[in-house]
């Protein structure tokens, strides 16, 4: 579904991605784990078209997405919930969700998806008319995931949805990610919380300073002694 081949990216003179390759097949949850600064966010920004790779190929559903503008990429069904949530703070919860559905032309489907988001995260319905900036961190994360769901993604990119959240809320978010996947959404999950991510992922990649150093199924990586030492604190 998504194919990243030999992709390099830099900020000015600093090389951040040094020819990484990864792929995501329809129906999978794939996780990209790695330490802070490894280049995970940069990878997602390149996929979403906000940062242009210096070289390499990016194809989604067989189409070359490197030259595409971000809003075209979203229209293909490749949707990202960014790191740090990035909700629109002075817009209400409902308006934030509406922005998620910005590219859609099927009002009935959008309506169904509001219900779907509200049933997965009832707290969002309670806070519907509140500015998003007044929500707690956990609620904002739920909103960010819900907002991305409103775009009806075929492939959902999630950048550190567990960042800075209490364990109970993290568990809830991961539960929702699995539910979405079972309902047909393919997921590429970037995480520093490697244990949780590998547990729900079909496959995973380990990114170290801009290079993919390991890959395997979730189970394989969880059992790998190098992964355990470096990312699972064992």
């Amino acid at each position: 579904m998504l194919n990243v081949a030999n992709m390099s990216a830099s900020y000015g003179a600093i090389d951040v991605l040094k020819g990484i390759s990864l792929r995501v097949e329809e129906g999978e949850i794939v996780t990209l784990i790695g330490a802070n600064g490894a280049g995970k966010t940069t990878t997602l920004m390149c996929i979403s078209g906000l940062h242009k790779p210096r070289s390499g190929q990016l194809t989604f559903l067989g189409q070359d997405i490197v030259p595409m503008a971000p809003h075209h990429i979203v229209r293909l069904g490749l949707v990202q919930s960014p790191e740090g949530r990035k909700v629109f703070p002075r817009m209400t919860v409902a308006e934030n969700l509406e922005m998620g559905a910005y590219t859609r032309r099927d009002p009935d489907g959008v309506k169904t998806d509001y219900e779907r988001v509200y049933s997965l995260f009832p707290v969002l319905q309670e806070r519907k008319t509140q500015p998003a900036g007044t929500l707690s961190g956990g609620e904002q994360q739920m909103l960010a995931v819900g907002r991305a769901m409103m775009a009806k993604p075929r492939l959902l990119l999630l950048d550190e949805p567990s960042l800075g959240l209490a364990p109970l809320i993290v568990a809830r978010i991961f539960e929702v990610i699995q539910t979405l996947n079972q309902q047909g959404t393919t997921v590429l999950l970037v995480e520093q919380n490697a244990r949780m991510a590998l547990r729900i992922a079909h496959r995973g990649y380990v990114l170290e300073t801009g290079t993919v150093t390991m890959e395997g199924t979730g189970v394989e990586l969880l059992a790998d002694s190098r992964v355990q030492a470096a990312y699972l604190g064992e």
């Binding site: 971000p70 229209r75 817009m91 922005m99 998620g100 910005y102």
Partner: peptide, 19 residues
Amino acid sequence: KAMRATAQDPAAARLMGID
């Protein structure tokens, strides 16, 4: 709404598919 979203966070607005 797209104007307000863009004013509040242009990168996030792009990720929503706003031109």
